[in-house]
């Protein structure tokens, strides 16, 4: 019983990590309608930035989050402006190729700059264990869960109460109508891509003290993030959160009760089942909206 509770706690913690990574992907996909295959590499960039700020300037990763979020916003905006924008009118698969190319380029750039070695930040306070009933979790994991909830809540409020948020939603719903209403669609896209990347920046600062960074760290997360986003219904932030929790718990339970090397099989099977039986995801808006 203790073990089951511990596994579920672990699953929730893992889920909050997947959630915070998937938020950015959901935003970019939902608004700009670009499947960003370089999402994991943006995470990697953010993690290296956090590492450098921590190792060279002695900045605590949670403080480093602020400059890293700004940096990633700029990187994301530049990607949209100079890579995706010129391709907006091209077919969708061209944009996908562009992001795949960007992902490969970033991985190799990281290999060139940092080598294949892993870098980790020693932040003992974040790795402190908290006892919760019979189970343990880390301070850093709890912080991640809180940040994921706060981020999703904050984005929801932003999208529904501010003029900019409304413009973003309008653009996501119908690009041409938004354009006719005087929304500067291209600038909204740049902002949205930047915002999505900034979310990954936050995620990377939170993850860095828990998991060491390598040039290929993104490839693991990005696949899971795609599953989460599809499970959540592509464009729904709450959906992504719930999807992430499901994947986290399934990951944790199947790793223990089935086999550690088969856990991916289990949640990819769930992924396929969702695609077959409910292609719009758990929180999708129905056919035709994806």
């Amino acid at each position: 019983m203790d073990i089951l509770v511990q596994l579920i706690v672990n699953g929730i913690m893992l889920g909050s990590m997947y959630a915070i990574i998937s938020v950015g992907l959901t935003l970019i996909f939902g608004i700009v309608r670009v499947v960003n295959f370089a999402h994991g590499e943006l995470l990697m960039v953010g993690m290296y930035a956090t590492y450098l700020l921590g190792a060279k300037l002695g900045l605590h990763p949670y403080l480093a989050a602020f400059p890293v979020v700004v940096l990633l916003f700029v990187v994301g905006a530049l990607i949209q402006r100079f890579m995706i924008q010129p391709l907006l009118k091209a077919e969708e698969h061209i944009q996908i190729f562009a992001t795949v190319g960007l992902s490969t380029a970033l991985v190799n750039l990281a290999l060139l700059l940092f080598g294949a070695d892993l870098y980790s930040l020693q932040v003992p306070s974040v790795r402190e264990s908290l006892r919760l009933g019979g189970s343990t979790l880390l301070v850093g994991q709890a912080a991640m869960l809180l940040c994921a909830v706060a981020l999703i809540g904050g984005l929801h409020v932003f999208m529904h109460t501010t003029p900019l948020g409304r413009a973003v939603r309008a653009t996501a719903q119908n690009r041409n109508a938004a354009l006719l209403m005087g929304v500067p669609v291209e600038r909204i896209y740049i902002f949205a891509f930047g915002l999505g990347s900034a979310c990954v920046g936050l995620a990377s600062a939170l993850i860095m003290p828990l998991i060491p960074v390598t040039p290929t760290i993104g490839s693991y997360f990005v696949l899971t993030a795609f599953v989460v986003v599809v499970l959540g219904g592509m464009r729904s932030l709450t959906g992504a959160f719930v999807g992430a929790m499901i994947i986290g718990i399934v990951d944790s339970l199947s790793g223990y009760y089935i086999a550690p090397d088969l856990k991916e099989v289990v949640y990819f099977a769930i992924f396929i089942a969702i695609l077959v039986f409910k292609p719009t995801g758990l929180f999708g808006l129905g056919r035709g909206t994806e």
């Binding site: 511990q6 893992l14 998991i211 944790s252 790793g255 223990y256 086999a259 550690p260 090397d261 856990k263």
Partner: peptide
Amino acid sequence: TLPYSARSVDLTPVVLRLKS
């Protein structure tokens, strides 16, 4: 005997299996 993926970000299931 427990195989796992080297890219995994969570080995708690492995640890708990060994522990129990």
